[in-house]
Design a protein around this nucleic acid. Structure first.
Lengths: 352, 352
DNA sequence: TTTCAACACGAAAACGTTTTCGGGGCCCTC
DNA sequence: GAGGGCCCCGAAAACGTTTTCGTGTTGAAA
């Protein structure tokens, strides 16, 4: 239907321009790159033609020739999750600023998908990639696919969910410190019986946040009550478990390692006719829209996902563009910060 | 540091295999593709070698040769937004199933960024792309960049935020019908003075949802009160406007065109000492985690973002793989559905 | 012994670039 | 008038594939 030559103009190549203007391909290439080898007259003629027909060099050919794609990969476990979404934003911004594109792959927390993703990214499509490892992979503890691509010389940066056995650049947050600060804040506001709702230990960040919780208790000489620790296995169906857990215990504070757990906790407390923050204070982790808009709005530990993504992209691109690779691998730690909102402010009623 | 030959094994090419085994490049290529031209002996030798050193063909070279990348682009206005995140999930799933990768670009709702994104995607990096147009672009009404790539023969599918002037495949939802159904639901539950919180009209979906609201009123012989319509310009700083708007009006129902507006509305009502759903019913649009977890949980019009993304990817890949392109462009309409939650259920108190 | 098919492989072109190198023409200088 | 520069430009290689075509060797049939 759209074969009208006035409308349909297929992509132009150097060869076609050359044929059209009766010069050689090399002349065209040089003219377009303002080489002094080409006379003004020829150069202008060629540039005018190229502009008129909107010539744009073919990226694939450039990639092949230069053996660099100016594309970085980003492998994430999931995406319907504010934290990872902000990571993407950060990566994208830095990548764009430095002239790179971003190829995003989702592992859906599946080991097999992650292996496939890495293979694809390592086969020339990208100059390096950023990875936040899948839950299933952490559980299996099988990292051969990562070792493989790293040993091929592909630059890799791990972000947030990292694994210590792999040596590469990493960007993490001070999960443990952030959790400790949050729990300390609860203690400072009078809490003594603080429950923690966390994940099973093979999730590195869950484990670290639990550690922070324990450190805060120890630091304030509060005896640990194992009964106040809930480790969730199945995140998606956690509400029931949380509800039962909180229903059976007398507490004055809750520390949840993510927003989902925190909101479930608030609901469960409401059902017990306890109100937040009047009766129980609630502190959450990973600041997202949910925490901001919830009623009461939730105090959270801000993970600064965009900063993490940005830092990871900087590290990766630095590594890619370094010709000599004798620089030591580094682990950047992005500081968390507490965002205090209604859920931990005892005095006033919930407003905005 | 890592130049230990035992550890460092750079990527293998056909040429290197050929040199190593003292055959020609073409023989290697054929052997690996099980060509009958090659003798069993040679074939097995080559395949064994390739497997041992984990040979994987270079994607870029393949793309150049075949003039297809098996990659599709996805240009989105933003990503920290459940709807677009689910769209990505849908696109990714279908793309992967059909052997394609997904290159994601963010326009950040900026016209210039969108133009850059399209240029990049059209320069050989992808076989086609899916686009949800930037707010700024809709406002400007300048679509030459889109026309440009389409006229070059690049397959394009627009999703959700589409523009009628452009002829290409599209995937939309029945925004107007969804809104009408939601408002009808409010009316059915006794509301008569229903406020709508929507966007300015140049956002196509905002306009359509407003239309649905009007249709519902007309269909029930409820007189339109222009004073109950709030059109938000600056989404990010909308809370104050919503608060003032609701503070000054007597209403019994609210229809908000997105989750952000809806939650702001609930807060504003609470501040007026009105409770939801006892005093005022609230219906929202675009079902996300926020609506599900909010207290009270919000009734919403589900946009089925994953379905939309999946459908868009199907359309795009069909278009890419069709050799004859005489098929008419189609506009797929993904049905919305109402998700009824606490915010419109008068009887019982909020639980879950 | 000659001829011819089948077999197994290699050479080369192609995809679209960039870049190195070489060479033809021109002008200037002795 | 011969030699030497300079100015422009083209040929060719290279990136890593796939594929078409040609070619040499072998074996068997005539």
């Amino acid at each position: 239907m759209n074969f009208d030559p006035l409308i349909m103009k297929p992509k132009l190549t150097l060869k076609q321009i050359a044929r059209e203007l009766d010069v050689s391909v090399s002349t065209v290439s040089k003219a377009l790159r303002d080489s002094p080898e080409i006379s003004d007259e020829t150069r202008q003629k060629i540039q005018a033609f190229a502009k008129l027909y909107n010539y744009k060099p073919n990226n694939i050919a450039l990639s092949l020739k230069n053996r660099r794609t100016r594309t970085i990969g980003l492998v994430l476990p999931e995406i319907v999750h504010d934290f990872f979404a902000t990571v993407i934003t950060g990566v994208e911004e830095v990548a764009n600023k430095r002239g790179y594109n971003v190829l995003i792959c989702l592992s859906n927390n599946s080991f097999d998908r992650e292996v496939m993703n890495l293979e694809m990214l390592a086969n020339g499509s990208t100059d390096g990639f950023i990875l936040s490892i899948a839950k299933e992979t952490q559980q299996k503890g099988d990292y051969h696919h990562l070792q493989e691509v790293i040993s091929q010389g592909m630059p890799v940066v791990m972000v947030d969910r990292v694994v210590n056995e792999i040596i590469c650049d990493k960007v993490i947050i001070d999960d443990s410190d952030g959790a400790r600060d949050a729990v300390q804040h609860l203690i400072d506001n009078g809490c003594r019986r603080i429950a923690i709702i966390t994940t099973v230990d093979y999730i590195s960040v869950g484990k670290l946040r639990t550690e922070g919780y324990l450190r805060a208790l120890r630091g304030n000489d509060i005896e640990l009550d194992e009964d106040l620790i809930l480790k969730i296995e199945d995140v998606d169906n956690s509400h029931e478990a949380i509800s039962q857990f909180l229903g059976a215990r007398k507490i004055d504070g809750v520390f949840a390692v993510n927003e989902q757990f925190a909101t479930s906790a608030v609901k469960a407390l409401l059902n017990k006719s306890l109100s937040v923050p009047e009766d129980v204070l609630v502190f959450s982790f990973s600041d997202g829209e949910l925490s901001r808009r919830f009623i009461p709005s939730l105090s959270t530990v801000n993970q600064h996902g965009a900063d993490m993504g940005a830092k990871a992209a900087e590290l990766l691109i630095d590594r890619i563009e370094k010709t000599v690779t004798d620089e030591e691998y580094q682990t950047a730690i992005v500081k968390t910060s507490l965002v205090e909102r209604e859920s931990t402010q005892k005095r006033k009623k919930a407003t905005v």
